Simulated scan of single mutants.
Amino acid sequence: MADKHVDRDVLNTLREVMEEAYPELLDTFLVDSDNRLRELQQTADAEVLSSVAHSFKGSSSNMGATRLAELCQELEQHARNKSPSEILKLVADIHSEFGEVRPVYEAERLRSHAH
């Protein structure tokens, strides 16, 4: 189900490279993502939106959350020229996409702690 949302190859590579630091990486991504989502929902400032979206895009991309990274990129690029309602819709899309991928990372974390 999550394959259009999460690039499993990226996760497999991260798991191999990071080894015992992998669960920590997952934790950090989940916490940072929550914080960034909150920031996106609380601001109407185009500069802040663009900056937060840029950071979020980078971490999403690094973690293989491809669709999430695309949505963040769209927000980063268009924060200055979209209407408030378009921004709200995009932030809502980012929020729901994170809702799709969160269980994948939480399951990964449980699995990696189990070893």
Results as ranks from 00 to 15, higher is better:
83 S>F: 05
57 K>S: 09
61 S>H: 14
75 L>I: 05
54 H>M: 10
100 E>K: 10
108 E>N: 08
6 V>M: 06
67 R>N: 08
14 L>D: 02
84 P>A: 09
87 I>D: 06
24 E>K: 15
91 V>W: 10
109 R>C: 07
42 Q>K: 13
63 M>F: 04
53 A>K: 02
56 F>E: 05
85 S>F: 07
82 K>G: 09
47 E>W: 00
60 S>Y: 13
108 E>K: 10
69 A>G: 13
37 L>E: 00
29 F>T: 03
90 L>W: 01
23 P>Y: 04
105 Y>C: 02
24 E>D: 10
101 V>Y: 00
114 A>G: 09
5 H>V: 08
96 S>P: 00
44 A>V: 08
106 E>G: 03
44 A>K: 12
78 H>T: 14
85 S>A: 15
113 H>R: 13
63 M>H: 01
88 L>C: 13
73 Q>G: 15
48 V>K: 14
107 A>G: 10
19 E>A: 15
71 L>Q: 13
59 S>A: 14
68 L>M: 11
49 L>F: 00
108 E>H: 08
36 R>V: 00
100 E>S: 06
98 F>Y: 14
94 I>M: 02
103 P>A: 05
95 H>Q: 12
29 F>S: 04
37 L>I: 10
8 R>M: 15
72 C>Q: 03
71 L>M: 08
81 N>F: 12
94 I>L: 06
7 D>M: 03
22 Y>A: 03
18 M>I: 02
106 E>S: 07
91 V>A: 07
